[in-house]
Design a binder for these strands. Structure first.
Lengths: 188, 188
DNA sequence: TAGGCCATGTAACCGGTTACATGATTAG
DNA sequence: CTAATCATGTAACCGGTTACATGGCCTA
């Protein structure tokens, strides 16, 4: 999904500013769709307004800079609804942790232990974050999505804790970087 | 991770061609790292060779076009090993399916049902694919990664089957597109 | 005979990130 | 006094994708 659709999705829940949209996409409810930065959000909102899918109004604030509040238009809402109707693309999962795991022998026990510890902490954080959203009594659909995420996090957490010793053993089996048991070119 | 590192990772397992690297990154063991296309792999390999991290040799084939077989050099192997030592970045998970789920009321029961069916099928395919790799008796670390993936797939599959009726009920609660119970601007 | 697989490569494009510019307020 | 937060925006860059060029072999 692109930033344009992300903006429409967030605006369909209520009016906000570009600044808020970025926060939502980085650590809010929308962090599993696109990780957009200012440099992409502001131009996207400008184009969306030029296309008539959103409208904006300026609001002065005491002490703080002016806010530019965007609202979705009927056309915008229709375009977003239409985009929901076409079949969703494959989920994307990319993991540098799994790369380290896959090359555990090359990385060595120290790096693998660090990677497992880091990943475990991140998964726990993610799970706790989803739990806190779920506790705030969001809409039924948001809650459904949160619980899906929690189930996934707990599944991978369980595998990690139950199998970390095995990965450590694999890593210890051939501590490369000091001594390299791999042939220079295996498929020669 | 970028295509450059992907190429080093694959070449560290043995010599291959750009064509094979793409296949590996699209549906092979490396599909959870980067989804690279020819347009990025061939230039990456050329730069890698210019930097002295890989070497290549041409091989003529009867009937088929020539193959350019790349081998990783000691320098290349060292650079890849070094990249494994720095702490892995956060896993990335992006799901258009979850976007549809999050806006189930707006999408309506038909689109939600289609999305669930599609996602279920994709997860099953992914799980079966990982199982077939695991059955081929790969190296211990590859097997560890496969089983991790299988555990994740089975976790989300379980949630999906156990909770799809609830999501369908949410979607049915307000079948938008025909009648729209949402206010034009909620946060006005 | 049409399309898919093998195989390499280039060029145009595009969707994003990073860094910069600006500036007031508030918390440590 | 410094750093962070609020708030908007631009410009340079970059890492990728898409489409194109080329061409023989094999299968339906």
């Amino acid at each position: 999904m692109n930033v344009r659709t992300l903006c429409l999705a967030i605006l369909s829940r209520g009016d906000t500013t570009g600044y808020e949209i970025r926060k939502q996409s980085v650590d809010g409810r929308f962090s599993h769709f696109v990780d957009a930065s200012f440099g992409s959000i502001y131009p996207a909102l400008a184009r969306l307004e030029a296309d008539g899918l959103v409208t904006s109004r300026q609001e002065a604030q005491a002490g703080k800079p002016d806010r530019k509040i965007y609202s979705i238009s009927e056309t915008g809402r229709a375009e977003f609804a239409a985009s929901l109707l076409q079949p969703p693309r494959q989920d994307i999962f990319r993991s540098e942790f799994l790369l380290v795991a896959m090359f555990a022998e090359l990385a060595g026990p120290a790096a693998v232990a660090r990677a497992i510890a880091l990943r475990t902490k991140q998964i726990e954080q993610e799970r706790n974050h989803l739990m806190s959203i779920s506790d705030e009594k969001p809409s039924a659909s948001v809650d459904w999505v949160c619980r899906y995420g929690i189930a996934c996090m707990e599944g991978s957490l369980a595998y990690l804790t139950n199998n970390k010793e095995r990965l450590m053993a694999i890593a210890a089996g051939a501590d490369t970087l000091t001594e390299t048991p791999l042939e220079t070119s295996a498929a020669e």
